[in-house]
Design a binder for these strands. Structure first.
Lengths: 193, 193
DNA sequence: ATTTTTAACTAACAAATGTTAGGTAGCCGA
DNA sequence: TCGGCTACCTAACATTTGTTAGTTAAAAAT
């Protein structure tokens, strides 16, 4: 496989940070170069193009979400437990890859075709894992009979937003955040006892 | 007050659509002009600058959210009912102003200072209305004792995402969507009876 | 009938953007 | 010691960008 030089790793890490902070379009190649304290043209020793950089980040991040959540999705556990664990795992990926996750969740839209459509498909496949477990829960009469797409979108939007507010230096561990979110979404805000 | 000519309304409506579809930065003045079938420079008969256009849209949309939700926030109803109605109202504004809401929710970040900071403050004040009613519910021991900021962010992110998937030509009315969302968030996905 | 306003135009601008060409100093393995 | 590789440089490029200047034809107001 292709080994990734240490310097290229720095380029990628800086790009992740800037793309997630300011957005892909608002980050110029010169901004990125300045953050690395080199000239803009020098970036092209490490990277083929600005969009290739975005693509690489998006690609690797998608891999990580799949690698973390897919095993849980395929495991044999009861439905409630499975959804809980998937939420916790998903949130964990976000919290430990805040910058890259922002690309997975938002900035991928700025890929150009055909990559953009391919990526949208990949994201849809990812979300289908959540959709499937939710459908399962509905069929088992364990989950409420909302439209299955509605429930999926509501849960995903609530947990995805984590990437905008989670701070690694805060007091909450990623796991605790995931537990709180799954508990909230499964049981609701209202006290029942 | 300043009357807004019919043509300017068209410019604004088209800008709302393009800014929300492709994003503010990805929409050039020439894109906008082409959609209106005029030359780029002609836009400046109607609008002072591209950012002024963004600003106007963001400003009016914020007004609308406040005008719709603030009266409910200030009303004397029990806490659960108040939060429910606020969610429904908020979702209703989104669903009936999909394009402008996308600016309120996302694209305002591309305002330049000091407008950006002012707008962020305004949004924070808006969200504070939700935060307050949630705190109230916690104090009344009616809502679960999650961190108040956590609950607020979770609810808002779930309901804000509506703007990406709601279709006016679908079968759900905005009110029904709001009811489903508030029911989901207050009671959770799990069946209890 | 004359003036003013409106809404468009053409032409051009400076600045910013992503990118390429071609070069150079230092390091590493043979 | 030599050749090639790495990581950067300067200079320049073609486009795209938001915007201004100045003009014009038609409509509205006086």
């Amino acid at each position: 496989m292709k080994a990734i030089s240490e310097r290229k790793q720095q380029v990628i890490a800086t790009a992740e940070r800037l793309f997630s902070e300011k957005g892909y379009l608002a980050t110029s190649v010169r901004d990125l170069a300045e953050a690395l304290q080199i000239e803009a043209a020098s970036l092209y020793s490490h990277v083929k193009s600005k969009e290739d950089l975005l693509w690489g980040i998006a690609d690797r991040c998608a891999d990580q979400f799949f690698a973390t959540v897919e095993p849980i999705s395929a495991a044999e556990v009861n439905t409630k437990e499975k959804l809980t664990q998937m939420i916790i795992a998903h949130v964990q990926v976000i919290c430990t890859n805040l910058a890259a996750s922002a690309i997975f969740l938002r900035e991928w839209r700025h890929l150009s075709e055909p990559r953009k459509s391919e990526y949208a498909q990949r994201r849809a496949n990812y979300e289908k894992m959540f959709r499937n477990v939710i459908r399962q829960g509905i069929e088992e009469n364990l989950f409420k009979h909302y439209d299955e797409g509605f429930s999926t979108r509501t849960i995903l939007s609530a947990i995805n937003w984590t990437h905008t507010w989670y701070r690694p230096d805060g007091e909450l561990t990623p796991e605790k955040v995931g537990e709180n979110l799954s508990s909230f979404l499964l049981n609701g805000l209202i006290r029942t006892i």
